[in-house]
Amino acid sequence: MSKPEQIDLGLGLLDHQLVDSEGRRCGNVDDLELEGLQEGKPRVSAILVGPPVWRGRGRLGRLAAFIARGETVRVPWEEVDEVAAAVQLKKTARELRLGRGDDRARKWVEWIPGS
């Protein structure tokens, strides 16, 4: 496991691509869950993914959250394998309940020959 010693959460983690253990792209880091702010020892406890989270991401984000459907998926920080340009996860998207939009949309595509 390699997580950088120092990271700018805003630039180096937020809004980055999530990639599962099989190399599948399965969402972006829409928001972060922080713990221990009161104790003065803040740590990232989870990555949050999904339209409801966009509500906290500016005016357009609130609008997008209002239009888009879907629920929040919480990926515990322990499931993160590596943070580079993309965020590599330890498990598959299915196990983490990520990328389900692609699973749902599959039925619209898989009837076409050669899909």
């Binding site: 792209r25 969402g27 939009g101 699973d103 599959r106 595509v109 076409i112 050669g114 899909s115």
Partner: peptide, 16 residues
């Protein structure tokens, strides 16, 4: 939005 993408993927794997 972080979806799977690419012409190099099978269409059903990058369905959106």
């Amino acid at each position: 939005f972080g979806w799977e993408w690419g012409k190099s993927r099978r269409p059903r794997d990058a369905s959106r």
